[in-house]
Design a protein around this nucleic acid. Sequence first.
RNA 1: GGGCGAGUGGCGGAACGGCAGACGCGCCGGCUUUAGGAGCCGGUGUCGCAAGACGUGCGAGUUCGAAUCUCGCCUCGCCCACCA
Length: 819
Amino acid sequence: MTERAERFDPRTYEAGWRERWEADDLYRADDEDPRDKHYLLTMYPYPSGDLHIGHWYAATGPDIVARMRRMQGLNVMFPMGFDSFGLPAENAAIDRGVHPAEWTEQNIERMRIQFRSMGCMFDWSREVVSSDPAYYRWTQWLFLQFFKAGLAYKQMAAVDWCPKDQVVLAREQVEGADRHCWRCGTPVVKRELEQWFLRVTRYADELLDFSGIDWPEPIRLMQTNWIGRSEGAEVDFAVEADGAEPIRVFTTRPDTIFGATFMVLAPEHASVAALTSDERRAEVEAYAAAARRETEIERMGAERERNGVFIGAHAINPMTEERIPIWIADYVLPGYGTGAVMGVPAHDDRDYDFAKRYQLPIRYVIMPRGGEVPSEGAFLPHTDDEVLIDSGDFTGMAASDAIPAITEELAERGQGEAAISYKIRDWLISRQRYWGAPIPIVYCDEHGPQPLPEDQLPVLLPRDVDFAPTGVSPLQSHAEFLAASCPVCAGPARRETDTLDTFVDSSWYFLRYTSPHEETQAWDPVALMRWMPVDLYTGGAEHAVLHLMYSRFFIKALRDMHHLDFDEPFRALRNQGQILGADHHRMSKSRGNVVNPDDLTSRFGSDTVRCFLMFIGPWDQGGPWNPSSIEGVHRFLGRVWAVAQAGGSGGDEAASRSLRQAAHRAIKEVGEDYGEFHFNTALSKLMELTNALGSARDDGLAGTDAYAEAVDTLLLLLAPMAPHISEELWSRRGKPYSIHQQTWPEFDLALVASDMIELPVQVDGKLRDRLVVAPGTAAEEIERLALASERVQGYLKGRAPRKVVQIPGRLVNIVTPGE
RNA sequence: GGGCGAGUGGCGGAACGGCAGACGCGCCGGCUUUAGGAGCCGGUGUCGCAAGACGUGCGAGUUCGAAUCUCGCCUCGCCCACCA
């Protein structure tokens, strides 16, 4: 009876469908489409050479959602491009003598082909390549806008320097306890250099506001902590020296000021030299010099002993009017607050350690209510309910009230004010490297640094340069590039040779996708307003304080420059987990644990690899690579192949009702799961539907309308996850091309609900029996049935229940009177 | 040191106040096959012949009822790390 279906072999049809989709421009997002727009984006990759399994994992999730949204009637844009400036290209040039441009282009070529083999619905007509002059011209233009708005500036600064890559790094690019370079892992050192910065700090407060955007809590927390807002006060301490300016400290605990028994300055503090007494000078200078020489690692080590040097000068505590000694110590950081702190050893553990070491006085000024001053002079940790003691007029006041009260008192006296400090620093964007967008600035002896006129953009990267890493940009030895003329006086000028951090490129690429072929402007404002903001963005959580924060900053700054009128780039954000190597370590060429997806696709086909990746576990979790169950997923697609082509003539319509119910439940649940990025459970439900179809076929239902409807439903629901097999089977069933242009099925609520429900019956919370009742059965009836149960009777032993708990449609729990 | 998250069968995981272990892998048994492979059917948390008991890192608590909520501890992962 049943025809023997053709053997399931994805290799016979997958590539053919991809070619047809592409030839038909099936996935092109049309600006003029009247339907609601939906901009779905996944982070564009660096073209490192080969697509690895992590790229597949990252892209398949949003591709599924994009495909479903399209079937649900939205005008979906799902673009892809390449983040193609950056160090690896230059390293390849150094190691292998290939030009970075060539290396990058070859990699992009290869990755485009590999990307296409995934069967994603990327709209390649919108591709953006950040190292293309047609793109970086506008990156340079954006830099000029920031410069003109006062948001880009050049300054000497102690910066993080990677001695291996010979380049400065942004603070966000220095990682780990040993303060290493995010690219090569080499510990960084500090260097005083003149560098370009973008004024992110101006937006610190606004960046703390996540209202109106749907972002994962961990990312919001990471950004919040990175920005590190602290409320407190700045307080002036007069200095006991002729004509000396007062020294301003920052504190979050002005309520402890009566306990300030010393002051500590950062060794780099501007007042140190002038205040140091002659007899202390040699020691102070030696200490400051040693602090300067030390690397970040040594200085930042948390376990490190706190040490410092008395500089031979005194300040006056503005509240107690006592003389307190001024020290320098490297536990005070020059870049945070005012670079000076008041030492309150009784209530700050760092100050406590310091005071202990140098026998400085410890004075208790805050006590838990009813507490006692420790006789041994121990450190008193902070508690919720504290009052001030030994604090002049403020004695007896609750600490929480004393903070504003003392701040106000100081302000009235002109000795301080409420103040807020942030940990975040301005974003260092200049790089002494070749393979990046040149910074469009020229230096004139007469007129200093000048922005290039916009009509001189792009500043093209010359091809013939020497790539040996010397610590200065390779562009510095390129005479032709260097020569420029001053935009003010037309006299000879020297071109800036630093290039922009690649994170500048990626801070706006999502804007360019809206009108990627625009030649006269960075974007077409109409297209921009049509598509932005991005409705759903996906990518790795490792960009929390890098790309994801910089992009928010860019949008807010561009809004204030009136280039656009929304506040956030990405309305919703989802992070995928990381696929680790089988050895549970990050995949890397040096470890040899990289999984090549091409081998898997040539064996199983793209659909199997896509489904398998989505089946591993929750998409936001990732996990170590373990291909042992890929065969099972492949078998599943084989079963789909078989049930979709099973033939039959008629069958029992009445018996097929449960099959219809299975199909409609799948519509509801698979759709919900896709929307919530629960691809693993979506697939398990597709498997259940497939298994139900298999049983139905074995029961002779293959010829019924219900069977046909269930198969169609299965294919439509599977289409986002396994686009090829669903198209192939759809076509074999004689349905109109393309399945990806069909409407997402709707479920019938009446079919989603069960005809009969099985209620667990518990006795004292333990499962003892089950009742099968029609939905909507009255509670009294259910209680009667439950109490009538033989097994329940056995536990009640003739006693009346103490209580009967019923959760309608869920369960019955009978509580016995107890012993 | 601080913050966040996670600990469930042999494995990946499901359930996230209401039937623990969906779905799949693996394993065991069977059918089919000359054989291997593939495929199909059945079984598979632990102890127990069974009835049943016990089970979600450990310990307490809340609740009629806890893998799920609360507190403490242990382990692992990620982020930040002398930020006054």
